[in-house]
Structure formats: structure tokens, C-alpha cells
């Protein structure tokens, strides 16, 4: 990974005009397990793959509720994600305290990206090693936002991050034009299929390792129970959306990331 002497500090540019520390942080996002976010015209959906750090450990929670109409899922360093979700919850609460309404997703992302951006500009900090997908609903409809360690954020039709997300990205790119016409059940199915495409052959989606979160016009942000996840998994049972080529190599299991 060591490229040259210009990657020692986030405040040092390389002569090619790159900030290697920031790029390494973006690499850290890929160590986490895959996450998918997508939306139709009324609902935004997050679908995430949960990992257990060992056979003896429980599966880590991957989707976190932030406010009544906001939820996030993350990929990368769990500890960084915990810090950032606590920050997001605080921001939501103080906005709700003064304005009596849920903060619009875009304003929240503005605050989040500012916080993440500061860490790329100071010599005494490191960039956050976490990528986030935020699902929100406000007066402008459902939203999926991607927040990146570099301090930028994107308003997305659909997005995926994390380990082996390339095949999920391919699936989403192939299908996203049909998403606005989908109902909630179909959009969740698309999310599950995209997530399934990231799995190696010997692994399958179960209600243990999948987490689903939904927010919409007439439903506050909700994380599905094991039973609800199971029922939705039944809908795509027997389908296989993994790419034909099977060149996946085993990932190194790093306990600090998920």
C-alpha cells in the first residue's frame, strides 16, 4: 500500500495533486461488508449484509435509526460509524428541539460532510474510514445519500458500498431505470438481489446476515424484524444473481470493520 513519501500526512499533497491519506480512507470503506440503498417514488430502502466477527460472536448491527424519518447504514470502521451516527442523532435532536420537525436529509448530510471534511484538512486528524448510505424522507420525497470519507456527499437514485459491491453496482445500473415504477415489495426485492450478487458461492442470504430498513411517505424509519426479513427473502428464493465468473478471493477478516 505504501506508495511514496507523500502519504505520511493528510495535509501533504503529492506532486500529482493527490491526497493519499484520503484515498486510503476511501479504500477502508471497501473492507466493510456490502450495503445497498435504493428508492422508488415514495420509499427509500437500505439493505445491508451483516458480518459476525467470529463464529462465537453475534452479527453486528448494520442499519441504525437516526430519527423518525432518517436511517443510515455504513461500511468501514465500525467505531468511526458509531461516532458519526451519534453525531447525526445529536444534530437531529437539536434541530427537532428548535424547529419541531425532522431535519431535511440534505441539511443533515451537509453537516455530516462538513464534519468528515474537516478531518481531511488538519494535520492532527485522520479522515473517517467509513462510507455511509443515508435513507431519509422529507417534504421533497424519499432520498438516498452517499457520504464519503473525502467529505463529499451524493444524492443517489441507488447506491452500493463495501466489499465486493461491484457486482451489486452492476445489478443496480442494469435495473435502476425501473425503480421509480416499483412498489415497496419490489424495491426491497431489488435490494436483496443486488446484495445477493455480492456474495461468494458458498454463502447465502439469511435472516441472520441481512438487515433491511425502510422509510417512506407513510412509514417512519423502520428496521425489519428477523421474521419480516425472512418473509422478504422467501420472495427471491431460488434466484441467483451472482455474476458467472467466480474469481472472488477470500477477504481478510478484520474484526474492526464491518
Amino acid at each position: 500500500m505504501f506508495r511514496n513519501s507523500y502519504d505520511y500526512d493528510v495535509t501533504i499533497w503529492s506532486p500529482q495533486g493527490r491526497l493519499f491519506q484520503v484515498e486510503y480512507a476511501i479504500e477502508a470503506v471497501k473492507f466493510g461488508s456490502a450495503i445497498v440503498g435504493l428508492k422508488n417514488t415514495t420509499d427509500a430502502v437500505l439493505v445491508s449484509l451483516k458480518k459476525a466477527s467470529s463464529d462465537l460472536a453475534a452479527f453486528k448491527k448494520k442499519i441504525i435509526e437516526i430519527d423518525e424519518y432518517l436511517g443510515v447504514t455504513y461500511s468501514g470502521l465500525t467505531a468511526d460509524a458509531k461516532l458519526l451516527t451519534r453525531f447525526l442523532r445529536n444534530e437531529c435532536l437539536s434541530y427537532r428541539y428548535t424547529e419541531n420537525v425532522c431535519i431535511p436529509a440534505e441539511r443533515l448530510l451537509e453537516k455530516l460532510s462538513r464534519k468528515m471534511h474537516v478531518a481531511t484538512q488538519r494535520y492532527d486528524q485522520r479522515p473517517f474510514g467509513v462510507g455511509m448510505l443515508v435513507a431519509g424522507f422529507d417534504s421533497k420525497g424519499p432520498h438516498i445519500y452517499e457520504a464519503c470519507p473525502s467529505g463529499t456527499f451524493f444524492n443517489c437514485k441507488a447506491m452500493t458500498l463495501g466489499g465486493r459491491c461491484q457486482s451489486a453496482r452492476t445489478y443496480l445500473e442494469k435495473n435502476f431505470s425501473s425503480f421509480p415504477d416499483c412498489n415497496l415489495e419490489e424495491i426491497i426485492k431489488h435490494g436483496l438481489r443486488a446484495l445477493q450478487s455480492t456474495l461468494p458461492k458458498n454463502l447465502n442470504l439469511t435472516n441472520q446476515n441481512v438487515s433491511i430498513g425502510v422509510v417512506g411517505a407513510d412509514c417512519e424509519f423502520k428496521i425489519f424484524s428477523d421474521e419480516e426479513v425472512y418473509n422478504h427473502l422467501l420472495l427471491i428464493e431460488g434466484e441467483n444473481h451472482r455474476p458467472d465468473c467466480d474469481e472472488f478471493d477470500e477477504e481478510d477478516d478484520n474484526n474492526e470493520v464491518s
Partner: peptide, 19 residues
Amino acid sequence: CLDDGFKLKPRSLYCWLTR
């Protein structure tokens, strides 16, 4: 200045003034 298309609503101003 935020220019995000959201406009303050009366209930929000009322809450803010209360604070």
C-alpha cells in the same frame, strides 16, 4: 443561503421563538 429549497414553516418559527 443554504439554497436547498426548504422554507421555514410557521410551526417551526413558533417553536424557535418559544425556545
